[in-house]
Design a protein around this nucleic acid. Structure first.
Lengths: 203, 203
DNA sequence: CCGATTTCGGTACATATGTACCACCCATTG
DNA sequence: CAATGGGTGGTACATATGTACCGAAATCGG
């Protein structure tokens, strides 16, 4: 479908919307992330990516030498963005904020806008379980979370902030995945805050 | 490869190893689970499944009307087996066992023998996030865990066993996924026991 | 302004894939 | 024993897919 948008004379999109150069690379990766979220990694084909990005098929092979490369680059981009988002969230919070609540909100933020981005995240992490090439990215990603959340918990009075952050983060991941898989949507903030306080207190 | 095992006269496998009838159905599903673990859901093709199961291609379409059906049936089987395994583990433990440790060991058991089965589990759960048809299975699966672990925590003195089980389970899932994704293998039992005691105590 | 290099985009092609088809085997039943 | 029907397995085929190729357009250094 969509036979490469023949000419699209006057009507239709500005056609100048088509990104060029390096921006095109990112547009393709955005398409990959969207597809992974909606239909899984197996639905990522050169043709589908091109179609979603509204770019010609050949652009996918020009910017990425293989499908493998396309997927790893997408994971890297997702990680980069989410880490930046996390740091921003924490940095821009008022100093008066409760560190535990702040930490949990920062973890839970991506839930709201795009449930899809969450699926993408976990799908790509799983991919890392199989492809060693992705391990490093997965590691950086989790490390960034551990550092950020650990610092907050330390501020909250935890005596073993690293271990506490690990558990809190894991619990959040687990709850999110279960929620995705079952389709429910209970409130996650309350139970996580309880856990956070329990951990920090019991130290 | 393995061109349907032409005749395999005397050497080679007994050829009678080939399951027939309904057993064949399960052999195919086993193959699906193995493939998902090793190469992801996208690697599940009729041909590959047949090859791994050492059965003819047509057997896959005879027992399952579509690839979709093949995947959902595999998830159901994995869930059924794991739930039975969980209950057995708990039921066969001595009464003197510490309920918290028992609960955590029961959750962590599948780690040891087949790291692959874990990948399969999470991969299929993610699949459920996209295919509503799988939601019910995912729900039963998590519910079985919640009930079992909840009962143990109640025995351990928890005043809100359901909530505690939810958090403990989530933390275990999160830690396992991170471990899979990064390739590390730290000890998970200790931190989870700490969390379990912290939750039960703080009630 | 010009040549070189990068980027673009249409197309071709070998292979993989889902699935249908159909002939055969074999146990059960009447 | 014949018929019947579920099970088995080889094969065909239309379509999807990864990727190579190559000429045209854009961009940039001089």
């Amino acid at each position: 479908m969509v036979p490469s948008t023949p000419i699209a004379p006057t009507t239709g999109k500005p056609d100048q919307a088509r990104p060029r150069g390096a921006a095109r690379r990112e547009a393709l990766l955005d398409a990959v992330l969207l597809i992974v979220a909606e239909s899984g990694t197996d639905a990522v084909t050169h043709r589908r990516v091109a179609e979603v990005a509204e770019l010609p098929l050949a652009s996918t092979t020009y910017w990425f030498k293989s499908k493998e490369h396309l997927l790893t680059a997408a994971l890297e981009l997702a990680a980069k963005r989410d880490i930046a988002r996390l740091r921003d969230d924490v940095a821009s919070a008022p100093d008066s904020a409760d560190p535990v609540v702040l930490a949990i909100d920062a973890i839970l933020t991506p839930t709201e806008p795009v449930r899809t981005s969450l699926i993408t995240t976990y799908a790509l992490l799983l991919e890392a379980a199989r492809r060693p090439a992705l391990r490093a990215v997965a590691e950086d990603w989790t490390q960034a979370y551990l550092d950020t959340i650990g610092a907050l918990l330390e501020r909250a009075g935890s005596s073993q902030p690293h271990d506490d952050a690990e558990l809190l983060l894991a619990a959040a991941d687990g709850l999110l995945i279960t929620q995705l898989a079952t389709g429910h949507d209970a409130d996650l903030q309350a139970p996580l805050v309880r856990l956070g306080r329990s951990l920090v207190g019991t130290s």
